[in-house]
Lab assay of single mutants.
Amino acid sequence: EDEVKKIVKRLIENGVDDEQIKEIVKRQGVDERIVDKVLKELK
Rank of each mutant, 00 (worst) to 15 (best):
V35T: 05
Q20G: 10
D2N: 09
D17A: 13
D17P: 15
V16I: 14
V16P: 01
V35A: 06
D2H: 08
V4G: 01
E32V: 12
L11R: 00
Q28W: 15
E32Q: 09
R27V: 05
V30S: 03
G29W: 03
N14M: 15
K22R: 14
E1F: 14
E13C: 04
V8C: 04
D2I: 09
V38G: 00
V8F: 02
Q28K: 11
I12Y: 12
D31T: 07
D2G: 08
K6M: 14
E13W: 10
D18S: 10
K6P: 03
K43Q: 10
D36H: 06
D31R: 04
N14D: 14
L11S: 01
D31A: 10
K43I: 07
L11P: 00
D31K: 05
I12L: 15
K9L: 14
E23T: 10
R27S: 13
G29E: 02
K43D: 06
E32A: 12
L39Q: 02
K22C: 02
Q28H: 13
L42R: 02
E1R: 07
E13S: 10
E19L: 11
R10T: 13
E41D: 11
D18Q: 10
E13P: 01
D18L: 14
D2E: 14
Q28R: 12
I34L: 13
V35W: 03
I7F: 12
L11D: 00
D31L: 08
I34A: 04
V8N: 00
I21M: 02
L39M: 08
G29C: 03
R27L: 12
V38N: 01
K40W: 14
K6S: 12
K26L: 14
E19T: 10
G29L: 03
I24Q: 05
K26T: 14
I21E: 00
K37V: 05
K37Q: 09
V4K: 01
L39T: 02
E3N: 08
K26P: 01
R33S: 14
D18E: 14
V35N: 00
K22V: 09
E41I: 08
I7Y: 10
D2P: 07
K40I: 09
G29N: 05
N14R: 14
L42K: 02
E19K: 11
E13Y: 10
K43M: 09
K43E: 07
N14Y: 12
V38Q: 02
K37H: 06
E13I: 09
D31G: 05
K40Q: 13
I7G: 02
Q20S: 13
I24N: 03
V16N: 08
G15P: 00
G29K: 03
K40H: 12
K6I: 12
E32P: 14
K37G: 04
R33G: 10
I12V: 08
K40R: 14
V8R: 00
E23S: 10
V4T: 04
I24K: 03
I34W: 07
E3H: 10
D2F: 08
K40F: 11
N14S: 14
I34Y: 06
K40N: 12
N14Q: 15
G15L: 04
L11M: 08
E32L: 11
V8K: 00
E23F: 08
K9H: 08
D17V: 08
K43Y: 11
G29R: 03
R33E: 12
L11F: 04
V4Y: 03
D2V: 08
V38W: 11
E32M: 13
E32Y: 07
G29H: 04
L39D: 01
I12G: 02
I12C: 03
I12E: 02
V30T: 04
E41N: 06
L11H: 03
I34K: 03
D36S: 09
N14T: 11
I24A: 04
D36M: 12
E1L: 14
D17H: 10
K43C: 04
I34R: 04
K43R: 15
E19G: 08
K6Q: 13
G15I: 02
K9T: 07
I21K: 00
E13N: 09
D17Y: 06
K40Y: 11
L39F: 05
Q28P: 02
G29T: 02
K5E: 05
R10L: 15
E3T: 09
K43S: 08
E1D: 09
E23G: 05
V38R: 01
I21Q: 00
V8S: 01
E19P: 05
V35E: 00
D36F: 06
K43V: 06
K26G: 11
V4R: 01
D17N: 13
I24D: 02
E3I: 11
D31Y: 04
R33T: 11
I21P: 00
D36W: 06
Q28G: 09
L42S: 04
I21A: 02
R10I: 14
I12A: 05
Q28E: 07
K9W: 11
I34H: 04
E32R: 06
I34C: 02
Q20N: 10
I34E: 04
D31N: 08
Q28I: 15
K5Q: 06
N14F: 13
I7R: 06
L39G: 00
E32K: 06
L42H: 03
K26Y: 07
K26R: 14
D18H: 11
Q28C: 14
I21W: 01
R27A: 14
V4E: 01
K26S: 11
E3G: 07
K6L: 13
E32W: 11
V25H: 02
L39K: 02
K22F: 10
K40E: 11
G15Q: 04
K37F: 06
K9E: 09
R33N: 11
D31Q: 07
R27E: 07
V25W: 05
V4L: 12
I21F: 01
I21G: 00
R27C: 05
K22T: 04
R27Q: 12
K22E: 02
R33D: 12
R10V: 13
I12T: 04
V35D: 00
V30R: 04
V35K: 00
K43F: 08
K40D: 09
I21Y: 00
V8L: 06
K5T: 07
L39E: 01
N14E: 15
K5H: 07
K40T: 09
